[in-house]
Computed example of a mutant assay.
Amino acid sequence: MTRTAIIAGEGRLAPLVAAALDAPLIHALEGFAPPIPATPFRLERLVPFLDHLLDQGVSRVVFAGAVRRPRLDPEAFDPRTAQLVPRILQAMQSGDDAALRTLLDIFEEHGLSITSVAEICPDLVPGPGILTGDPSAHDQRDAARAAQILAATGALDLGQGVVVAQGLCLALETLPGTAAMLDFAALHGGLRPDPDGARGVFYKAPKPGQDRRIDLPTLGPDSVTQAARAGLAGIAWEAGGVILLDRDEAVRRAQAEGLFLWSCPPLAG
């Protein structure tokens, strides 16, 4: 029997993953409590934590939920984890993707396989199709332009979202996150060249070359509300590469606001 541990983060994803599994162990990085009971652990004691998982019969791990970079306490490292410090710090200085890949490597080196949210909850990752609304030809061009922008910025390890209106980049997701990006787009909507033209598209996609077992972009009903507040025409994302939480409510809000939701095939070539 395969026993699974969830490394749970903030947000609504971890409870959905837990509900799809048979008696998983649930742990959370200290300081990032998920909305379900979870046993905390510290990154400074990573090796003893991995030993604990193996002692409990865990053979695979799934990461579910949002976590920001923790502040590390040099005095809290145990001797075995301390040997990993140069490797961890070098990866963290190289960007989020490098840090996550290093973390996955360490888990696997200790005999734990990593599985993706998409494997456990495939219904959370929509395939190609329009869920609601009707993106215009202008919207489709803006989505394609957005995909090109994310493909170009992926090597810089920036965010996974962008807002494009009338072919111009209105906002790009960076460290403050998606909500801050959409707030910025709302504040600067008047920069659209044609006030009566295309309103713009919020687009999400994984970074090129990203390990899709962890940190997939996530959308949900709140994303729809924020996109509507920014005056956008709709939301598009790369099919098979983005988690959509509470699909029915997201569609309901999009219909109420007159937004389209489009899970599109890869647009960046």
Rank of each mutant, 00 (worst) to 15 (best):
A5W: 10
E10S: 07
G11I: 09
R12P: 08
A14L: 00
P15G: 01
V17H: 03
I26P: 00
I26S: 00
F32L: 06
I36E: 11
T39L: 04
P48K: 15
F49T: 10
L50T: 05
D51W: 15
Q56S: 14
G57C: 12
G57F: 08
R60M: 13
V61T: 13
V61N: 11
V62W: 05
G65E: 07
V67D: 03
P79Y: 08
R80Y: 14
L84M: 09
V85F: 05
A91W: 06
M92W: 03
Q93T: 03
R101A: 05
R101T: 13
L103N: 10
L103Y: 06
L103A: 12
D105A: 04
H110I: 06
G111H: 02
G111D: 05
L112E: 13
S116H: 09
P128G: 15
I130K: 05
G133N: 01
D134P: 08
P135W: 11
S136L: 09
A137F: 10
D139Y: 08
D142V: 08
A146L: 03
A151K: 12
G154D: 14
A155Y: 14
A155T: 08
D157C: 09
L158Y: 10
V162N: 05
V163P: 06
A165G: 10
Q166D: 02
G167H: 05
L168G: 13
A171S: 09
A171P: 13
L175G: 05
G177M: 14
A180E: 11
A180T: 11
D183H: 07
D183R: 07
L187P: 09
G189E: 11
P193F: 06
P195D: 05
P195W: 10
R199Q: 08
K204H: 06
A205P: 01
P206Y: 00
G209E: 15
Q210H: 01
D215E: 05
L216N: 00
P217C: 00
P217T: 00
P217W: 01
G220Q: 09
D222R: 14
V224E: 02
R229V: 02
I235A: 03
I235K: 03
E238F: 05
A239F: 02
A239Y: 14
A239K: 11
I243W: 10
I243S: 04
L245P: 10
L245D: 15
D246V: 12
D246E: 07
D246T: 07
R247V: 04
R247W: 04
R252V: 04
R253C: 12
A254I: 12
Q255G: 12
F260C: 11
F260V: 15
L261A: 08
C264P: 15
G269H: 12
